[in-house]
Amino acid sequence: MTEPLVVLKDVQKHFGDLHVLKDIDLEIGKGEVVVVIGPSGSGKSTLCRAINRLETIESGTITIDGKTLPEEGKELAQLRADVGMVFQSFNLFAHKTILDNVTLGPIKVRKQKKAAAEKRAMELLERVGVAHQAQKFPAQLSGGQQQRVAIARSLAMDPKVMLFDEPTSALDPEMINEVLDVMVGLAKEGMTMIVVTHEMGFARKAANRVVFMADGQIVEENTPEEFFTNAKSDRAKDFLGKILTH
């Protein structure tokens, strides 16, 4: 494995009395795809959000490409630009067209020229299959299309790593695959990805490693094949039993 791109060391986080992240140690190498799986409330979203500092942590360190996450301010904004994030609820800018959603970051943060940003945005929209919707507004698109635009919006920033927090959980079943296909494509091209998802098909096809979380802790890590067929911990076996019998 190459040098780690994202490193979490002894990360702790509470929400009031609730210890949501306990002693989290995790390294993600360049080009690695890590799937985070675990019961609802186990801290998966909080982990993702801590990595681009949408949530602060109390102790421990998080570094991205060797840089420790700075305090809120210009420097943090710059660092966030290098970390793409795709949300469960898409969060496209509702008042902007699809094209403007994708070009806002490149123009305002990367200081690209509008024409150049638009050209690249159209290429990305083409790639995720929504180029013909470029002039529409988010509310006019299906969930699957919106999520693909959200991926294009992240990609437009040329991120070093992308975080996905249950990207397909809010989608109707028939739209899940169109989003997963885009993600598998990204993984194949060598994008570093941290993906919170229960889609085992995606994990098997694209992930190098599965991290199982429960009650704020990383309970077990393994290759997808090993994890799904031969989980070691009782927590993981119990959890897999529940999602498999669905």
Binding site: N52, L54, E72, G73, K74, A77, Q78, L79, R80, A81, D82, V83, G84, M85, F87, S89, N91, L92, F93, A94, H95, L104, G105, K108, V109, A150, R153, S154, M157
Partner: peptide, 24 residues
């Protein structure tokens, strides 16, 4: 989520106010 998405693409507080929050 609108403000979070704005911060996540690297907009500063001022930029997310100007381009995302205040227009809406």
């Amino acid at each position: 989520g609108q403000a979070e998405a704005a911060r996540a693409i690297g907009l500063t507080f001022g930029q997310s106010m100007q381009h995302v929050l205040l227009p809406q």
